[in-house]
Design a protein around this nucleic acid. Structure first.
Lengths: 121, 121
DNA sequence: TGAAACGTTCACATCAATGTGAAGGCAAGC
DNA sequence: GCTTGCCTTCACATTGATGTGAACGTTTCA
């Protein structure tokens, strides 16, 4: 599909889809006339990118971890693909994500606790 | 304590502590000479603010929900304090936080799954 | 008293994510 | 063929969270 349709399907402005490409998050094919051409799964990928951005990750971090998401099965099973440095980077990023999750969970619970307390009074 | 000590205790630059005050997230007292004076609990509050910012929340949202965090007990139990609009706002914010948690959890799991798959090969 | 360390405000700079518009090429229908 | 809508690139503006530095007052201590 072309960029306009992807934009409609995802609700993400075309400007941003081009920006994500510039940031190496998306890699659409190009038609003869230069038009970008996206495969079906791009819809899901864009939603994933949006979710991560909204969660406070930068495009740089997303670029780094994106190749390893959505691929628990279809993995390049050559062990040399996973250098120790890369493994460390992924673990560190998972840890930082975990910290965010805990922070957000605490505060979500606090909001709920507040609402419950006030309502039961 | 003064701003420098709070900065050392939290690792947050004084510039940012002043910025958070400008954004109505912190409200230190002022000494006669104009120096800011923070109470002990400010340390925890600053850490909380940082956690929320790092999780992708804006200062505007943090300003709105901050008064209701950390107060499951010491609540203004006057029911008129919780207008329906305010309750809606808090619920909506809790929902959006929940979405972030789910997005981050999915991707943390994906990273772990990738690492596990590659290592067991 | 003078230096060092800290505080104040003001202001300009940066960076990432995004908005917006110009100027022009391509495509599909009337 | 012309209009309409989509596509391209280029470029400048904006917003929120920061960095950084100037210019100046305060506290501390030798």
């Amino acid at each position: 599909m072309r960029i306009g349709e992807l934009s409609r399907l995802t609700g993400v402005p075309t400007r941003m889809l081009r920006y994500y490409e510039e940031q190496d998050l998306l890699h659409p094919e190009r038609a003869d006339n230069g038009y970008r051409h996206y495969p079906e799964p791009a819809v899901y990928q864009v939603q994933q990118i949006r979710g991560l951005l909204d969660s406070g990750l930068t495009t740089e971090i997303i670029r780094r971890i994106l190749p390893f998401l959505n691929k628990p099965d279809e993995i390049h099973l050559h062990p040399q693909c996973l250098t120790p440095e890369l493994a460390d980077l992924l673990e560190a990023e998972a840890d930082r994500i975990q910290q965010r999750i805990e922070c957000l969970s605490r505060n979500r619970d606090a909001i709920h606790a507040y609402l419950a307390a006030v309502r039961s009074s």
